[in-house]
Design a binder for these strands. Structure first.
Lengths: 151, 151
DNA sequence: ATAGGATCTCTAGCAACTAGAGGTTCAAGA
DNA sequence: TCTTGAACCTCTAGTTGCTAGAGATCCTAT
């Protein structure tokens, strides 16, 4: 029986995140000690590891929920899991393609910048006029540049 | 003088988003008509295009705010803009590397899945055990698989 | 004059957490 | 046994970048 802190240390998922997962029904409600503190077993740890790993692979929580319910039914065809993973793969490929276009554009911007003043700065210029772009990029979409949890 | 709707059509930025940008101070407060409706000029349109393009390039709003204030000072050295763009480039490269690792892993997962039942499904298995991974991925971080606005 | 689309403000919601307040419990040391 | 302090509890609110809806007002075309 692990405390939430031990479970957190064992899985690398932060304590509030574990509680959050329980709250939204991704993890079952934990048992409680006499003093109302959460207690976990190996099976919870495995489930949480599954969630964590799926998150690392970029699956949204709703997909993980589905994947979890699939993994609870070992007799079913895995076609459904396959569909989810394929969908995710397609999304990942798409994101990569977009990001590579952005990378090129940023590199081009920076290469053109002659370290002068703003008035001649290609970075600002390129940002001002879409016509300067090589690519018809239409929004990569992720709103934070560094939203990860890898410190 | 453009109405907010025309400005929206001209820039591709949705009406509520324009109002939102004004609210958070990214755009100056618009002039108003006698009936209290927002009115914009070419300069606003340009500023909004700058914002939009920067967003498409993945810059977070705080960076764009900084970039805007730079572009308002044409005499300054563009080193600061360079720093922001370089930072963004690094973030983009990092994201690409992570996503490529994820792509490989998903492909491997799917290739191994022999279309049997869940109990033999590699997708579920790989998700369950991090040890099955080739890569030491540590969180790509973006929470939605398809958060773009190009649907 | 009137219909209906565009606009206004305001609040609430989305993902997926994170941070903090204010209180309780547990484990280790004296 | 007592005490300290870390870890735990619940609850609310904040983050980012918007989006959706309610209910009211305005503007334009007929």
């Amino acid at each position: 029986m692990l405390s939430i802190g031990k479970l957190s240390a064992a899985t690398g998922v932060k304590v509030p995140t574990i509680r959050y997962y329980e709250e939204i029904g991704l993890l079952p409600e934990a048992e409680r000690s006499a003093g109302n503190q959460r207690l976990y077993r190996k099976e919870h740890q495995e489930r949480l590891a599954f969630v964590r790993h799926s998150r690392e692979l970029g699956f949204p929580l709703d997909d993980i929920r589905e994947l979890l319910s699939l993994s609870d039914r070992p007799d079913m065809s895995c076609a459904a899991a396959d569909v989810i993973a394929s969908r995710q793969l397609a999304a990942v490929k798409d994101r990569i393609a977009r990001l590579q276009a952005l990378q090129q554009e940023l590199e081009r911007m920076l290469a053109q910048c002659a370290q002068g003043t703003i008035s001649s700065c290609k970075v600002i210029e390129v940002l001002s006029n879409h016509e300067n772009c090589l690519h018809a990029h239409h929004g990569e979409g992720c709103h934070s540049a560094n939203p990860g949890h890898d410190g």
